[in-house]
Computed example of a mutant assay.
Amino acid sequence: MIQFALLFALGCFGLAILINLYKIITAPGIGDRILALDTLAINAIALITIYGIWMETAMYFEASMIFAMTGFISTVSYTRFILRGDIIE
């Protein structure tokens, strides 16, 4: 039963990533694209974590934590660049 739930979750998050990619390409403004990119990072973290549960290894959990840190930093950097024009003051 857990295998079915994991496959269903993998399919749902895979579909969400495809929708996010479409939104990144077709979004009207840069703010919408940044938000879609952040949502894509969150969905990718969930996808990596679920895959780690399915494979029963802890390596994917560490990878998802690293991806979460870099995703947060990239979102903040993009937003600061759009608002101020520079990243480092």
Rank of each mutant, 00 (worst) to 15 (best):
I42Q: 07
I50W: 02
I48A: 02
A63P: 03
I42E: 06
G71K: 00
R84F: 15
T70S: 14
S77D: 03
E89K: 10
Y60I: 07
T57R: 10
S64T: 03
S77P: 00
T49K: 02
G14R: 01
I82C: 01
L6P: 00
T49Q: 01
W54I: 04
I25P: 00
Y60H: 04
Y60G: 01
Y60A: 14
S74Y: 08
A36D: 11
A36R: 01
N43Q: 11
A63K: 01
A68D: 05
I45L: 09
N20I: 02
A46I: 05
Y22G: 02
L37G: 09
I24G: 07
M59E: 15
I48M: 09
E89A: 12
L40P: 01
L18I: 05
I50G: 04
A9C: 10
I88N: 06
F81V: 06
A16D: 07
T39W: 11
L7F: 10
G31V: 06
I25A: 13
A46L: 05
A46R: 02
I42F: 08
Y78E: 04
T70E: 07
M55T: 12
I48T: 13
T75Y: 05
W54K: 13
T49F: 03
L18Q: 09
A63N: 11
G11E: 06
Q3T: 15
A41V: 12
A36Q: 11
T57A: 07
R33G: 13
R33P: 03
I34Q: 04
A16Q: 11
D38E: 07
S74I: 04
G52V: 04
I24W: 06
M59L: 14
A5M: 10
A46Y: 02
A27Q: 05
T79K: 09
D32N: 10
Y60W: 15
A41G: 15
I2E: 12
L40R: 06
G71E: 03
A46N: 02
F8R: 03
E62W: 13
I25T: 06
L10T: 04
A41P: 01
I45F: 11
A46V: 12
A68N: 09
S74T: 14
A36S: 14
I25G: 03
M55Y: 06
I17R: 02
I50D: 03
A44R: 11
Y60L: 11
A9D: 09
Y78I: 13
D86Q: 15
F8D: 04
A27T: 08
M1H: 13
A68P: 09
A41R: 06
G85L: 09
I88R: 03
A46M: 08
N43L: 03
E89H: 02
R80Y: 12
T79I: 10
F61W: 08
I50P: 00
Q3E: 14
F67G: 07
E89L: 08
I19W: 15
N43Y: 05
I19N: 09
D38S: 13
A41D: 05
M65D: 02
E56R: 15
A58R: 14
S74G: 00
A36Y: 06
L21C: 10
I88K: 00
G52Y: 04
A16R: 12
G29A: 11
G85E: 03
Y60C: 12
I50Q: 05
I73S: 12
E62Q: 10
G52D: 00
T70Q: 06
F4N: 05
T79C: 06
L37N: 12
F61C: 00
I2L: 14
F72D: 03
T39V: 13
I19H: 05
T49P: 03
F81S: 08
M55K: 14
L10N: 12
Y78M: 15
Q3L: 11
G52W: 02
